[in-house]
Design a protein around this nucleic acid. Sequence first.
RNA 1: GGGCGAAUAGCUCAGCGGUUCAGAGCGCCUGCCUUACACGCAGGAUGUCGGGGGUUCGAAUCCCUCUUCGCCCACCA
Length: 880
Amino acid sequence: MAYDPRPIEPAIYKRWLEAGIFQPTPAGGGEPYVIVIPPPNVTAELHVGHALNNVVQDVLVRFERMRGRAVEWLPGTDHAGIATQNVIEKQLAAEGKTRFDLGREAFVARVWQFVRATGNTILEQLKTIGCSCDWSRTRFTLDDAYSRSVREVFVRLWDEGLIYRGHRVIHWCPHCLTALSDEEAEHHETQGNLYHIRYPLEDSSAFVTVATTRPETMFGDIGLVFNPKDSRYAQLTGKRVRIPLTEIAIPIATDAAVEQGFGTGLLKVTPAHDANDFDIARRVWPNSEMPLIMTEDGRMGGRADGRIPTDLQGLDRFEARKKLVTQLETEGLLVKVEQHNHSVRRCYRCDTVVEPRLSDQWFVKMKPLAEPVLAAYRKGEYGFVPERWRATYENWMEGIRDWNISRQLWWGHRIPVFTCANGHQWADRKDPTSCPKCGATVEQDPDVLDTWFSSWLWPFATFGWPDKTPDLERFYPGHTLVTAPEILFFWVARMLMSGYHFMGQRPFRMVYLTGTVRDMKHRKMSKSLGNGIDPREVVKLYGADALRWTLIAGSSIGADVILDPNDLETTFAPGRNFANKLWNIGQFVLAQLSQRAATIDEVDRRTLTLADRWILSRAQAVIREATHSLSDFRLDEAAKRCFEFAWNELADWYIEAVKPRLDDPAAKAVLTYCFDLTLRLLQPVVPFITEELWQKLPGRKANELLAAAAWPAVRPELEDPRADQEFGRVKTAIEQVRSIRAEYRVPPKTKLKATIVPRGNDKAATFDGERDTIVRLAQLEALALNGGTQGVGAHAVFGDGSEVVVALEGLVDVNQECQRLTDEYQRLDKQLTSLGARLTNESFVARAPKDVVAKEREKEKAWREQRDVLAGKLKSLGCS
RNA sequence: GGGCGAAUAGCUCAGCGGUUCAGAGCGCCUGCCUUACACGCAGGAUGUCGGGGGUUCGAAUCCCUCUUCGCCCACCA
């Protein structure tokens, strides 16, 4: 019967919750280990990216919990201003309404209603994949307490002069109807056109030609500029042109920002719809008006209707472009259209092409915040895993730009700026009823804050800041932050800045940046592409452990994870197969343990067999290596190493070897120790099945949980290099027989006679001690341990020159055998030749490290011995 | 235009200066329902480690360069 995780996983999770082990032990009970979750959007549903990210956190947290740390993994959600508002507006649209029909208050109430009803979805989904968050401290970025922190931060920054009102061209999303920060307007390489358009000179019938990618903005032009060094246009200085299709005359001037080589070298200046043009206009025509020619939703018109031909008014900007180009062509004003690839910014929430738009917004001065944080980074106060993010991060921090934090939305933290009838303006921690200076009536700024202006406080606002709470005292600063590199600037960099600024120290020491989950074509998995993998489906089909296994063991540190959404079976088979293997190891081990076995400390060490000593020694190695890998964020390495131990060492060899000795208390003790150890080591990665099996081990106390059990420690007294080596020899002997059997097509049931001719004095004892193991696992009827009865057979020489002879009367063809052995001899001889060359190479002997040379010498000795035995064998068989 | 990363078996990846280092999982081939497991057991096959150059006693591993992919940043309209 195969393992079925479905009934087991939810029950196990429930037990963990009931035991309360996800909450940190009370103060004093262990050094804290803190991770704050990257709060998913309240409206989010779990996708495979979340799964990867959170499983990584869960592995770290479970590992540290077992190591005795007081783990605080703080969960929560983000109110996600734009995204959430969009969801509700879509709902309203389906009802034929807009938010303006409801009005602000009713709209916000409706969003709250939605959030209260569905906001826990993603957190519940995290539970199904085993996340061991401290649910007692779940936070939401719009909670009252959290809002208080946000407001406090705003007021403090205001008082420090770091918040200001800026009049400039910002990124505007005509669909979301709000301003965006630079980070929220994503670059997309786009195939566009460069339109060469004639602008008629005012005082003659001549034209000048201007190249632009956005002809529809021409109605907002306030002039043309060319580079002062551009002799082609020198005579144009001071002249005026008319905007095509209009009577509007605009001046021509020079500005050094114009590149002579681009387009025609003449640039149209549209200051209200291009940040670059805005800068030029301020230099060249500081007193000119800067007409906005589009409405907020991206149609031609608005305040400057008068500048736009009637038939274009009200048209969407892209339709207007099409129509305008046709008109220009008809009028003979279009010289040519060149294909032109350039980068277009799109809204990160709705993918609409962003419209640069002149407006008034609140900004945070970032340089003063960034500088100390960058300096701290360079001093090594915090770091990134993988380290290669350094350049990206430093580059962004060095070139940091002010942050537009106002959003023209209703869902979010209302900006706490108040203006009175007499023009006094201030930021306030409480809502004032009248102006403190003049008593006049006050109005609050209508906008809300950028969502990230609340999430950048997550590592301390969640613990009660600005109050000096015990939680804040205990859990700040945190340790590791695990997140996707996509939000390095949005979130991570800003948390570092707020952490240093408001708490005076780093919010975490290490930032682990996971890779991105992609499909087989290396495209990012996304809803819109329909190439995603639904973790819930995977859990349903194969269990959370299988999902976790594939995500953890299948991806190296910070590397992208490529999964096949069209073949879940193959994608998640490794995890499912492994869980099944563990399950069956469990079935076997548990069947031997009707009652509590003796511990390995209770058995007489002298009764341990070679196999026992070997597996105990291997166990120490896996503890050492897994612990090291996990401490080093090498989760994949740790997972795979434990897999190897469980499957290839414990199951394939030890369990097989121990079968006849199941009555032996020593065998039971060793088996129990190894199985228990395996479960402990694997608990962080596959917590459900390991917990389930661990519960079944005899002697378990009530309420004792693996998830809260101790991480295994290396026991040096059990390390046994000699047993490693000797049992290695036994394994090789068995493998040689099996290999010969397969080669000569001897059916598995046919028992064979074999002889082992050990090399060296103490070697015979090794084989003799495990004689029974060899006989059984190699399917022998008799095993001789001497040089005597060799007869007709197949031969293999291994390791230090010990040899195996399998009697194959009538099956072995001498020629075939000669061929086999000759091939083997030649292979060895070739290796020896190259090794010999190296060892006689003076520069190698002189320059290579001594231990390397010594190792090579030893190797040479062993190979030579092996070769000599082979040579003797060939001779005795009469091979040529 | 800058920066970063990847290119290793049919597929997804590990290895990142010492040569029993050419690996794992999945897939493939040959036997096996051997009483824990066919989601398994045993035995196999498969790679000029993207191309070229260099450094070194020694390179899949370091440097340069080219090619191909991916990502990030950027005010060529």
